[in-house]
Structure formats: C-alpha cells, structure tokens
Amino acid sequence: MFRDREDAALQLAERLEKYKNQNIVVLAIPKGGLPLGAIIAKTLNAPLDVALSKKIGHPYNKEYAIGAVSLEDVILSYEHGVETNYIAKETQRIREKLQRKSEVYHKNKVSIPLKDKTVIIVDDGVATGNTIKVTAQLVQHQDPRKTIVAIPVAPHGAVQNLQDSKYIDEVICLLIPRNFHAVGQFYSEFEQVSEEEAIELLEQTNGTVNP
C-alpha cells in the first residue's frame, strides 16, 4: 500500500538509483504518471517527457484495441475484417488530437530524442500493461539503448505481459498483489491529476534538472 503518488515515486526512485546521472530519459504516461515521473527525474537528474500515444479501437467495439498511434508511428495488432479506410481515418483523427496535446505539453518545443538513451517509462500503476507495452514498442522505433518500465503496482498477469514484450528490457514493479481490482485501491490518496498540474510538473522538472 502506498500513501500517495509521491510515496510510490520515492520508492521507485530508490530502485532506480543506479541510473542516476546516466544518459537517460524519464517518459511518463499522462496524466497520472507525471507526479511519479517528476520525482524520479529529479532524483536521477534526468529530463522528463510524456508518452503521447492512443489506441485505435475496433469499429464495432471501441474498447477493443486493434493498434495504437503516436505522432510518428502506427502499430497494428489486429486488422482482420477492418477496412483500411477506417484505419486511415482513425489514424488521422487520433494524430490531430495527439498533436494538440503535444502542443499543450511541449508548448511548441520538440520532444526529447530517445536515440541511444536508456528510457524509463513510468506510470502510477497498470491493470493490463497494454498501454505501456504499446508505448515501449513506439519508443523502440527511436532506437533507445535500453527500455525500462517502472511502476508501483500491477497484477501478476500485467507484469508477465510486460516482461513478455521484446521491446522492454526490464520491468520494475514494487507490488504485485493477488487481489487486484484497480490501481487506486493500493493508494491511501489517489486523486485525479489535472492537465494543468501535469503540464506544470513537466515544466518545473525540466527547469531544475541538469542532465
């Protein structure tokens, strides 16, 4: 059990101490991952960025992901019976949304290059691992040296899902409970993070670290 996101972040930062002052980038999943990412980035003296990607839902069941889109890449995991026109339109729609988010988070600054870096992907917890798994695959297209996933809590199946990914080199998970229903049940305080708070954390963190 964690007191709050700060408590979880400090415990993760301790496990990641060996990477301090190395050639790393902390990549947070917005918005809940940013409070953790900010603390970890400051502790390791590393730059912080956000992972901007979104799933493509099946045309007849939007919750079922058939792939994912970032500003640079498209990954398709299922195409059977799905029209290419639908995929093209969804990709364009999602990209436009991600572009707006990128402008909000980066304020017209470019995202941090990941080539030859050790990338640490951070979230406040995962239920399935699919979002981070897709993020790691998208990260791989930028040729990082190593990709690490650091999360406070996840069920065993999600951890296994991440460990099975050929795009993830190491998974650090502090708590793997048997009785998992939702990430929030393992925090005493688990308030929503607003976009304004997330942006402020990103700006403040990158204004204080000296990678």
Rank of each mutant, 00 (worst) to 15 (best):
Q92H: 13
K31A: 12
E200H: 15
I121M: 11
Y187V: 02
E191W: 13
Q204W: 05
S188W: 10
K20H: 08
N61M: 09
H80W: 09
P144A: 12
A198N: 04
P47N: 03
E83N: 11
P177D: 01
I94R: 03
E14V: 06
K115Q: 08
V183A: 01
R15C: 14
Y86F: 12
I24A: 01
I24C: 05
S188R: 14
I120M: 10
L71G: 04
N179E: 11
P30I: 03
L12S: 02
A68W: 01
P113S: 04
I172Q: 13
L174V: 07
A46N: 01
D143I: 03
D143T: 05
C173K: 02
Q163P: 02
Q185V: 11
A51C: 10
S53C: 13
T205M: 05
N23T: 12
V209A: 05
V69W: 02
T128R: 07
E6T: 12
S165I: 05
K18S: 15
N108M: 08
N161D: 04
I40C: 15
R15Y: 14
K166Q: 10
Q192C: 06
E90G: 11
A13K: 06
G157A: 09
V26L: 01
I121E: 08
P30D: 01
E189S: 15
N108Y: 13
I151H: 00
F2Y: 14
M1D: 14
S165T: 08
A38F: 08
K107P: 00
V193E: 02
L16C: 14
I66H: 06
T147C: 09
N45R: 00
R3Q: 10
T43M: 07
H181I: 08
A8V: 06
D124R: 06
K107N: 08
P211T: 01
L52P: 00
L71F: 04
T43G: 05
E203L: 15
D7S: 14
Y64A: 14
V122P: 03
Y60E: 15
E63H: 05
V104Y: 15
T205G: 05
R15P: 15
V25H: 02
S70K: 07
K20D: 10
T208I: 09
K42Y: 11
H58W: 03
I112E: 01
S188H: 13
T205R: 08
E196F: 11
F180A: 00
D164R: 04
H106F: 15
A9F: 00
